[in-house]
């Protein structure tokens, strides 16, 4: 996916930021599922995977900020924590996607995704304990907040994101990561 031009990446990032605002609204309108299925994470993760780390980072910072300003979701009190968490996801999906090349699109996607989701959770837990709520934040709260309550959201992300990337490749909206010829040469 290294063939996307800078302009294309910028515009795709813009669209992903817009989706950070739109998807939570859509989820709320559909089934009041915004807080369970973490819709804002999906565009940020995709942006990191497709456009690389600087763009993923921007999307993770700007998405929740814009959404909070325009729709007051997430509420301001949670905005800094959420920005840090999403920025880490956007950053690390981009970094890992560049480092991991297994010749299999799905393997790359799953490794980068799970890696970024883990690193992001650990680091934002650390940030929370040291900066946002020093003293009052415990391991139990971390585990409950980052793994238990968002389990349905995690499942959705792991199922949906590779599907979306595959669909985008099929529709020729993003270049193929492993074009057929390259695979044949390797074989």
């Amino acid at each position: 996916m290294m063939k996307l031009s800078l302009v294309k990446r910028s515009v795709i990032t813009a669209v992903c930021i817009a989706l950070c605002v739109v998807l939570p609204m859509a989820f709320h309108a559909v089934q009041n599922a915004g807080s369970i299925f973490l819709p804002m994470h999906i565009p940020v993760l995709l942006c990191g995977l497709i456009c690389g780390w600087p763009f993923g980072l921007l999307c993770g910072l700007a998405g929740p900020l814009l959404s909070s300003l325009l729709t007051s979701m997430p509420p301001m009190a949670y905005l800094p924590v959420m920005m840090v968490e999403l920025a880490l996801y956007g950053l690390f999906t981009g970094v890992l996607m560049r480092l991991v090349r297994t010749k299999n699109l799905y393997a790359d996607l799953y490794i980068s995704l799970t890696g970024a989701l883990l690193i992001g959770r650990v680091l934002s837990g650390v940030a929370r304990a040291l900066i946002f709520a020093p003293g009052s934040y415990s391991m139990a709260a971390w585990a409950a907040g980052y793994f238990v309550t968002c389990l349905p959201g995690l499942a959705i992300q792991l199922a949906l994101i590779p599907t979306i990337v595959f669909a985008l490749e099929k529709a020729h909206l993003i270049p193929q990561r492993y074009p057929k010829e390259e695979l044949n040469e390797a074989a």
Binding site: K8, V15, C16, P43, L160, I164, A167, A171, L173, I174
Partner: peptide, 15 residues
């Protein structure tokens, strides 16, 4: 999935 497809299609057109 269709939301992302159409959003990316619009991004592609604009870019």
């Amino acid at each position: 999935v269709p939301i992302f497809l159409s959003a990316f299609r619009r991004a592609d057109d604009l870019a």
